[in-house]
Amino acid sequence: MSRLSSLFTTLAEQGRKALVPYIVAGDPDPRYTVTLMHELVAAGADIIELGIPFSDPMAEGPVIQLAHERALAHNTSLNQALDMVAEFRREDSKTPIVLMGYTNPVERMGYETFARQASDSGVDGLLTVDMPPEEAAEISALMKAVGLDNIFLLAPTSSEQRIAKVSALATGYLYCVSLKGVTGAGHLDVDSVRAQLALIKKHSTLPVTVGFGIKDGASAAALAPLCEGVVVGSALVDRFANWDHEADAAPQIAQAVALIKEIREAVDGAPTN
């Protein structure tokens, strides 16, 4: 059983929900990423989604776009992200790591090389924002062969037919995009997410995490009872927006940790469905 599957099994047994912070590898500076990952786990993260910096992050709102730019300013790319995961694994063999990014850096490395190196580095899964199942057959097969999970998005615009199709190829979990828009958008509507999750559950037994638009304990607590996990991205990444290159990033990391602790408590305190 993969790290992701066993995590969701354990959480289900405990009646708990996964808390999934998203950070960009190399943001605000590569030297902080592994430390930050450990701190997030200590603060209550169950899975870490590690963003692979890309020059053209088409699906991101302004906050995460800037995070990609900060990471790229330090030449952090897929190779460095894999090294960071390998370093993280020396001290943490338990917390699943999912790489989240865009197709081109993975394609440039080569699907086969990527699958092998990701597996060797201790990565658990990949979510490629701009690679829907129709284009993913080749990489999915290669990832499956080395035991990596392939995570796909489902959107408010996904038809039932598509939900079935995406679910058939997905492993690990499904990532439900809570709204029409880019990351960090502010118009979360819990009722429509509830309806969307009901459709997804009709066609899949995979755990479902919800992301886009979760910015604090309250929004996380509102969604957690409906799904198996919540993803926090922009609100977390925004903590690094005003970091001064000359200074130590400890205060920003402390703020990030505080946010994750707040959301952890809110999610754990939310009534079960």
Binding site: M58, T103, M131, P132, F152, A155, T157, V166
Partner: peptide, 20 residues
């Protein structure tokens, strides 16, 4: 039918746009 010219083309977008 899937929008490919040999190995090129296709539809590499996030899920939200597929229906559009």
């Amino acid at each position: 039918k899937e929008g490919h010219f040999g190995r090129y083309g296709g539809r590499f977008v996030s899920e939200t746009l597929i229906f559009a």
